[in-house]
Design a protein around this nucleic acid. Structure first.
Length: 566
RNA sequence: GCCCCGCUAGCUCAGUGGAUAGAGCAUCUGCCUUCUAAGCAGAGGGUCAAAGGUUCGAAUCCUUUGCGGGGCACCA
C-alpha cells in the first residue's frame, strides 16, 4: 500500500476533507474541522461536524453542506467510505484498506507508528532530579516513570533525546546531608534537620574505608569531601533503582560543574550587564528591572517578585546554580528545547525559570515544564499519613514497591494516571491489586499471539509465502485491524502533548480486540487461527503478527516488557 | 490573601467545544475435552461538585462558590 504505515489515517482523511471543502469554493482560513474518532459504531470510525462548522461561511444549512462534502470528497486508496448524517460527515474504514494495513504493519514489524515529525530536534529531558540525599520513594517514581516515558515517545516520533539527571551537590539540603555523614563518622547524632536513615551510617562507614584519614580532618574540610562521596554512593543507589524500571540516564550532571566551568558566574555577569540584577540588604536579587526597555518585559515580568541569587553572606542560592545550568544547556550544549519534569510542589518556580531563560536571551518557550501532582501516602500506611519525608524516614521506597509488585506493574500503575491527578497511595492495596493490574491483560494478549503463531508454524510447516489478506473478513478480525489503524495517531498525539497516559489506554483497547479475536476460536473451531485451510491460517497469522508487533511497540513506549509466555 | 491541580458509575480513573459520556476493578448471570480461562459474552450502576455565562452545540471555555491536595524563603 502506498500509504506509509507511519502516517496516521486520520491525517489522510483530514487532508481529503480539506480538499473537498476547498472544492466547494471556500477560500481563506478554514475553521477547524475537528475530525476525530466517531463515538458509536453506527457513526463509523471518524467523524467531522464540518457541516456545522461551515454553515456560517457558506450560508447554507449544515445537512446540505455535509451532503455536498460527502459527494465531493475523494479518499485516497478507498481507505474509507463516507456518509453524511445531519451536519456531520462520517467516515468508515473499508475492509479492503484494513486488510492491506495488516500486511503493511506485519511487514514493517516492530516500530509501526514511528514517525519523523520531530525532525531530529535536539532535546534534553531532565527528570526526577531529586536531591541525592537518600533512596527514591514511591513519590519519586512518578516523575521518573513519566519522564522516561516522555523520552520514549519523543524518540519514537523522531526527536534526538538526552536524558539527564541534575545532581544537586552544593545546596542547603546536600550540605545537611554531608554534615549528617560527618556526624555518623564520629559516632554522633545528625544535626538538627539532618538525615537520620540507616543508610547514612552505612555511607559513613564506607567513607572511613574509602577515604583514608577522613576522620582526622576538621568538619570544614571533611564535609565537602564526605558530601561528594555520599552523593556518589546515593547516585549509585538511585541509578540501580531506576535501572530496575528500565530507565537509563545519558548523563548525571553535577551542580558543582556549573561553578567549576564558570557558567554560573558567567550567567550572573550577563544578567548584571543587562540590568536584571540589583543589590539590596547586602544580597543580590534577580528582578524585572528593565522590563520597559528591552521587549522581553512580558516574559521577565511573569515573575513579579525579586529573588535572591547571592545571599548576604556571599553564598549563592540554588537559583544561581540554575542560571549557570541554563547556560550549559542552551549555550554550551545547544539543546533546542529543554523539557523538565517537576512535582507540583515546585510549580511556583516555573515563572522564575522562564523569566531567567528570557533574561539570558532565549525564548521562554524553549523551556517546557511538565508538572505532575503529588503521591501521598494513605492513612495508616507506613505508620503515618500525608506527605512523605526522607528526613523523617516516613516513606515507602521505590525499591520496596518494585519488590512487591514488579517493575511492569509499577510502570503501568503510574502511567495510567494523567499527571494532573493526585495519587493517594496505599501499598497494601497496590500489592493485592498487583495480580489484577491491567498490565497483565495486555501482556497476556501478547503472549497468546506468540503462542498461537508458534502453533501455526508447527502444524503447518509449509505455509504459503504470501498471505491472502482478503480472507480476513470476520468482524473480530477487522476490529483488530481497525485498532491497528489508530496507533500512529495515538503515538503522535501522546508525543506532541507529552502525555504518555494515552498509550496504556490504547493498549487496553488493542488487547481487548486481540482477546476477542482469539476467543472466537474457542467459540467455534473454524475461527481459530490454526485451521486446516493453509491460506486462511496464513492470513490470520499475518494479523497475529501485525497485532503482536504493535502491542510490543506500545508496551516498549511504556517501558513495559512484552513476555512471550505467561 | 494570592497562585497551581483535582471534583465524571460503589472504587480507581479516561474523555483535542460536537451526536446517545466511556474503561478497569467490584457486584450479578452465563462460557473451558479443542490455538494459553491472567480470557470471552451479558446485566445493573451517572444531577459529569453547584450556580450563572459564552455558543447552533459545554463534562470540556469564562465567572463565582463549595470541598480536597500542593505552593507562595537569603529551603529545593
Amino acid at each position: 500500500m502506498s500509504t506509509i504505515p507511519g502516517q496516521a489515517i486520520r491525517d489522510v482523511i483530514t487532508e481529503a476533507l480539506t480538499s473537498a471543502v476547498r472544492a466547494l469554493g471556500v477560500d481563506g482560513e478554514l475553521p477547524d474541522l475537528e475530525l476525530g474518532r466517531a463515538k458509536g459504531p453506527d457513526r463509523g470510525d471518524y467523524a467531522s461536524p464540518a457541516g456545522l462548522k461551515l454553515a456560517k461561511v457558506l450560508k447554507q444549512a449544515p445537512p446540505a453542506i455535509a451532503a455536498r462534502l460527502a459527494e465531493t470528497i475523494s479518499i485516497p486508496q478507498g481507505a474509507a467510505t463516507v456518509q453524511a448524517v445531519g451536519g456531520y460527515v462520517n467516515f468508515r474504514l473499508t475492509p479492503e484498506w484494513l486488510q492491506r494495513l495488516v500486511g503493511a504493519v506485519s511487514t514493517k514489524g516492530p516500530g509501526y507508528g514511528a514517525s519523523s515529525i520531530g525532525g531530529g530536534e535536539r532535546l534534553q529531558v531532565e527528570f526526577a532530579s531529586i536531591n541525592p540525599t537518600g533512596p527514591l520513594h514511591i513519590g519519586h517514581g512518578r516523575g521518573t516513570i513519566l519522564g522516561d516515558s516522555i523520552c520514549r515517545l519523543l524518540e519514537f516520533t523522531g526527536h534526538n533525546v538526552h536524558r539527564e539527571y541534575y545532581v544537586n551537590s552544593d545546596n542547603t539540603q546536600t550540605k545537611r546531608f554531608g554534615a549528617s555523614v560527618y556526624a555518623r563518622l564520629h559516632g554522633l547524632e545528625p544535626p538538627e534537620g539532618g538525615y537520620i536513615g540507616e543508610y547514612v551510617t552505612e555511607i559513613a562507614e564506607a567513607a572511613r574505608r574509602d577515604l583514608p584519614g577522613i576522620q582526622n580532618l576538621p568538619e570544614e574540610q571533611a564535609e565537602p569531601k564526605l558530601r561528594v562521596y555520599a552523593i556518589q554512593r546515593v547516585i549509585e543507589m538511585i541509578s540501580a533503582t531506576v535501572a530496575r524500571l528500565n530507565i537509563h540516564y545519558d548523563e548525571w550532571f553535577w551542580e558543582s560543574k556549573v561553578w567549576e566551568d564558570g557558567l554560573a558566574p558567567a550567567a550572573i555577569e550577563r544578567l548584571r550587564e543587562s540590568g536584571y540584577l540589583k543589590e539590596r540588604d547586602g544580597a543580590t536579587w534577580f528582578g524585572p528591572a528593565l522590563e520597559e526597555e528591552d521587549g522581553l518585559g512580558e516574559q521577565v515580568l511573569s515573575e513579579d517578585e525579586d529573588r535572591v541569587v547571592i545571599r548576604s553572606n556571599g553564598q549563592p542560592t540554588y537559583f544561581a546554580s540554575d542560571l549557570g545550568y541554563l547556560l550549559s544547556r542552551f549555550e554550551v550544549r545547544k539543546f533546542n528545547r529543554v523539557i523538565e519534569v517537576w512535582g507540583a510542589d515546585h510549580h511556583g518556580y516555573v515563572p522564575r525559570m522562564k523569566s531567567a531563560v528570557a533574561a539570558l536571551g532565549y525564548a521562554p518557550e524553549k523551556l517546557v515544564v511538565i508538572l505532575h501532582q503529588m503521591v501521598n501516602l494513605k492513612e495508616g500506611a507506613a505508620g503515618s499519613a500525608g506527605k512523605m519525608s526522607k528526613r523523617a524516614g516516613r516513606f515507602v521506597t521505590l525499591d520496596e514497591l518494585i519488590d512487591r509488585v514488579g517493575s511492569d506493574a509499577v510502570r503501568y500503575f503510574y502511567l495510567l494516571r494523567s499527571p494532573d491527578t493526585t495519587i493517594e497511595f496505599d501499598l497494601e492495596l497496590a500489592v493485592t491489586q498487583g495480580n489484577e493490574n491491567p498490565v497483565y491483560y495486555a501482556q497476556y494478549a501478547h503472549a497468546r499471539l506468540v503462542n498461537v503463531e508458534a502453533t501455526a508454524t508447527e502444524r503447518h510447516p509449509q505455509l504459503p509465502e504470501k498471505a491472502d489478506l482478503s480472507l480476513l473478513v470476520q468482524p473480530w478480525e477487522l476490529e483488530v485491524a481497525r485498532q491497528l489503524a489508530f496507533w500512529p495517531e495515538i503515538a503522535q498525539d501522546a508525543a506532541k502533548l507529552l502525555e504518555p497516559h494515552r498509550v496504556p489506554y490504547y493498549v487496553q483497547d488493542l488487547a481487548t480486540a486481540v482477546h476477542r479475536f482469539y476467543h472466537a476460536g474457542n467459540e467455534s473451531s473454524e475461527h481459530r487461527v490454526v485451521v486446516e485451510d493453509v491460506n486462511l491460517t496464513r492470513a490470520r497469522l499475518e494479523l497475529c503478527r501485525a497485532a503482536r508487533h504493535t502491542l510490543k511497540t506500545a508496551l516498549d513506549l511504556m517501558g513495559v516488557s512484552a513476555p512471550e509466555r505467561m
